Simulated assay, not measured.
Amino acid sequence: MTYLSESIPQLFYPLIIIFIYLTILVTIAEALNRFINDDPELTRKVVHIGSGNVILLAWWLNIEAKVIVAAAVIASIIALTSYFTPILPSINSVGRKSLGTLFYAVSIGVLAQAFWKDYPQYTAIGILVMAWGDGMAAIIGQRFGKHTYRVFDINKSWEGSTAMAIATFIVTSTVLLFSQGNSAQTWLIAGLIAIIATALEAFSKLGIDNLTVPLASGLICYGCYQML
């Protein structure tokens, strides 16, 4: 009984902290969605970037992989429900049908299951690359994207893709520096991830980049360090 009484607070206190963080995030996003009606993409990306940062909170609080996977499953169900019924306007309010939020949640679950126990840095890299890279690509591309190009029937801007590459490089190199130290491999791998993630983000039909970018970023980082 003593062990059980001690383990319950250790499990629930971190979850309460994350729940409070996410509640504040969604509240802010919904408020922005009400007051900034002319820029729904901005409010959606506030949720996108903010929810990705939860992985750093989970890492700091040492939350178990099974908890993250369970949360990803719940988020997937909510995202799928919101796809058909707009229960969260700040997430689905950009005038297009997309499964991006669902793919985002699935990628978090897959990365947590694959790496969280022994290599949490690769889970963090995959999720943060998608959160900050894709988020900044959308924000910069929407506001400053003057030079466009097409990937099949998808319009992209060089300004947005550049923002994606820079954000990805910064995120990847920062996590690798803190987790594996300063070395030539750190900078080479960060550069490689920036190139690959930016190329994958250029093809975002139905939000599929929310699955391909994080999974490729995490897996390639892991593979490169295993080889090197």
Results as ranks from 00 to 15, higher is better:
residue 10 Q to F: 13
residue 13 Y to N: 11
residue 21 Y to N: 01
residue 22 L to N: 05
residue 23 T to M: 00
residue 23 T to N: 05
residue 29 A to D: 03
residue 33 N to L: 03
residue 34 R to E: 05
residue 35 F to W: 09
residue 36 I to M: 07
residue 37 N to W: 15
residue 43 T to N: 09
residue 47 V to A: 06
residue 53 N to S: 11
residue 58 A to C: 03
residue 59 W to N: 12
residue 61 L to H: 01
residue 62 N to E: 11
residue 62 N to S: 13
residue 63 I to K: 10
residue 65 A to P: 09
residue 66 K to S: 15
residue 68 I to V: 14
residue 71 A to L: 04
residue 76 S to H: 01
residue 77 I to P: 01
residue 80 L to H: 01
residue 80 L to N: 02
residue 86 P to W: 02
residue 92 N to L: 08
residue 92 N to Y: 14
residue 92 N to M: 10
residue 95 G to D: 03
residue 97 K to G: 00
residue 102 L to Y: 03
residue 102 L to R: 00
residue 108 I to N: 11
residue 110 V to H: 12
residue 112 A to R: 12
residue 114 A to D: 13
residue 119 Y to E: 14
residue 122 Y to P: 10
residue 122 Y to W: 15
residue 127 I to Y: 10
residue 132 W to Y: 09
residue 132 W to D: 08
residue 132 W to L: 07
residue 133 G to N: 10
residue 135 G to I: 04
residue 135 G to A: 02
residue 136 M to N: 14
residue 137 A to F: 12
residue 138 A to F: 14
residue 138 A to S: 13
residue 140 I to T: 11
residue 143 R to M: 05
residue 143 R to W: 04
residue 144 F to E: 10
residue 144 F to Y: 12
residue 147 H to S: 05
residue 147 H to R: 12
residue 158 W to H: 13
residue 160 G to T: 11
residue 165 A to H: 07
residue 172 T to M: 01
residue 175 V to G: 01
residue 175 V to M: 06
residue 182 N to D: 02
residue 183 S to D: 03
residue 184 A to D: 08
residue 187 W to M: 00
residue 189 I to N: 01
residue 194 A to D: 02
residue 195 I to P: 06
residue 202 A to V: 11
residue 211 L to M: 12
residue 213 V to C: 06
residue 213 V to K: 06
residue 216 A to K: 10
residue 218 G to D: 08
residue 220 I to T: 12
residue 221 C to V: 06
residue 221 C to L: 04
residue 222 Y to V: 14
residue 222 Y to E: 11
residue 224 C to A: 07
residue 225 Y to V: 11
